[in-house]
Structures are given as C-alpha cells and as structure tokens.
Amino acid sequence: MTRRTRRGGVFLLHLALLAWTLLACLPIVWTALISLRQYVDAFSVPIRWFAPLTLENYSRLWIEQGFHRNFLNTAIVTFGTVTISLTVGCLAGYALSRYRGLLGFWLLIIALVFRSLPHSTLLPSFYVMFDALGIRNEYLTLIIVLVAINQPFTIWMLRSFFVNIPQELDEAAMVDGCTRFQAFRRVIIPVMWPGVITTGLFSFLLAYNDFLLSSSLVNADKLTMPAAIANAINAESEAFLMQGVAGAVSITIPLIILVLIFQKQIVSGLTQGAVKG
C-alpha cells in the first residue's frame, strides 16, 4: 500500500467516524439547543439555526414545577441502590469467586436466567404484595426492588473482578490470623476498588435510568426524574413540552459528566467478562 492511499484511507476512516459521532450526538445536542429557546423558535418551519437564547424553560421547570424535588428523589434512590447493591454484591461476588462447589455454579446460572427476565413480569406481583403490606410508594421499597433486580448483573460483574485477585492473598491473611471476613474486609476490598467503582457506576446507571419500576412503584412527590419527565411524553401544551425538553437535558448533564470522568471504567466494565470469556 502506498503512503498516498493509506493517507486517503485514514481520511475516509475519520469521515465515517465523524458521521457516526454526529449521528450519535445529534438528538442530544439538538435537544440541548432547543431547550434554551422558546417554543416558537424551537419548533419552527423552517428550522432556525440561530435563535434568541433563554433560560425560561429551566426556571419554569426547576422553580415553578419543583423539579428539584424529583432531582432529590433520584439522588436518594440512586444513592441507596448503589450502596446496598455494592455491599450485598461484594459479599456474594467474593464468595462466588472463591467457592468451587456446584452450588456456586448453579447460583450463577440462576442469576443469569433472572438477568434475562423482563422486569414487567414481576410488576403485577409487586403491586399485589406491596399493597397487601402497605409499603408501596416508599423510597425504601423502590430501592430494595432495584437492588434485587440488579443483583444478578452486579454479582456476575463483581465476581469477574474478584476472580482476578489471587487466592494466595486471602490465604496469607488467614494464615496471619484473620478470619475469612476480616481477610475479605481488610485485604481484598482495598485492592478491589477499581472493580467496585466500575460496578458501582453500572448500578448507578441502572438505578438512575430506570423508568419502568420507578414510574410504577412510586408516585406524586416521590417520583424520580425519568418518571416525572414521562408527563412530557404526551404533552400537547407548548409550555409543558418545553419544560420536558429542559428536563431531558437536566437528566442528561450528570450522565455526560460521568462519561467524561469515568470513561475508562465504563469501557472496562463493558468488556469485563466479555473478553475473558
């Protein structure tokens, strides 16, 4: 291959990648753009590339509609889910990486089956169960449900990180007089931080992005952001629609920050278990 054709090839590659990047970002960038406009400028024929900018939609949403309430709800639910998921998941993931018996194997297979179960199949029972116990529309109920539903994924991922930590490490600690739990707590967890952070990121995304369960198990002043924004789905009134647009952008901004900071961890999390078989 001559140098010239190679340079042409690289140019084509960049062109293709740029085209994809444009496609990948367009919906979000365009939404962000129109969120700063009034309705007449946001949806106009012909479309306007430049229009007066305004923060009106955001102030309406956050101040008048009290979107900060939904933000707080999301923060509570997400924080609770991540903390409990990681605590429970680390214990199980560690045990699954160290135990060689058949029971562990079956637990993993069952978790895999549950991983593929559509969440809506559990919803009717949740309604009946939680209504009978009178615990529907509670933060804790939603948190525990999210933890349980994400457990299969969490323990698989954490296990794949724990497997990479040599057994000799905990054995050495136990020879030195640690109990199994102390070895786990004092020796293994400190070297596990990268894995815990990566798994934590994914539990964060699962809880933060959840719509199906959040919109059905809690309501009114406990709604999370994605569930609250569902009101904009059928919005016909212009003001309501523009608030939805502003809400969509508000939900996305933390995620963009997350990608910029934790890109490496997200990539490693996605490939974990995939590359190593």
């Binding site: 994809w20 990047t21 970002c25 979000i28 992005n209 924004i229 939900i251 990608v259 890109q263």
Partner: peptide, 20 residues
Amino acid sequence: ATLLPFIITPVVGALAIKWL
C-alpha cells in the same frame, strides 16, 4: 462521543428522537 447514546436515560433518548 460514542458512549453517549448508550448511557443516556432511555426515556430521555427516546424523547430526544421523538422531538427530532
């Protein structure tokens, strides 16, 4: 840039496409 569509909240992503 590529990760964005994947991590975005599905409701929001679908809404963004709808508005587009």
